[in-house]
Amino acid sequence: MNNSLIVKVVSQKMVPFIIMLGASIILHGAATPGGGFQGGVVIGAAYILFALGIDAKTARLRLPVIKVKIVESAGVLIYAFTGLGGILLGSNFLANKIVLFPPQGEPGGLFGGGTLIPITIGVGIHVACTVASLYYAFVEYEGEPKPDKETE
């Protein structure tokens, strides 16, 4: 499969568009169906497609696992600090009356969710990185013996 030029080229060219779709789903998470998890999975799937097109080793060189893990933790911290912002500004955890994004926006619009925007972004980052690292964990697993016995 690695030899197929069509698979290689198409999978590489598709990646930016899929990531754009995922980002769009994440950013509109406050107002429409979708949100951090779904968009994050789309982005993670884009990365899996990228890694399938070229082989996993090369893809890993482009995006080392440790970087994926750092960004993954950063996603959670974005969520947590958005929540802590509520406490720091004198209200409750995850309170939505503080607006971190100056354009407050109409309810239902892109910025209508207030603090939901950073929250969905954090969730999306975390999920995308989780999907990518899960893929790595299974694909790059080494040290397995090669028993000739097969189960049904």
Binding site: F37, L134, A137, F138, Y141, G143, E144, P145, P147, K149, T151, E152
Partner: peptide
């Protein structure tokens, strides 16, 4: 669904390790 994805991922990794130990999935 998110939870079941996590459980499935951990279970599959445990299955991989079990296969490594036993050489079978039976």
């Amino acid at each position: 669904i998110v939870v079941s994805v996590c459980v499935t991922a951990i279970a599959l990794s445990v299955v991989v390790k079990l296969y490594q130990h036993y050489g079978t999935l039976d």
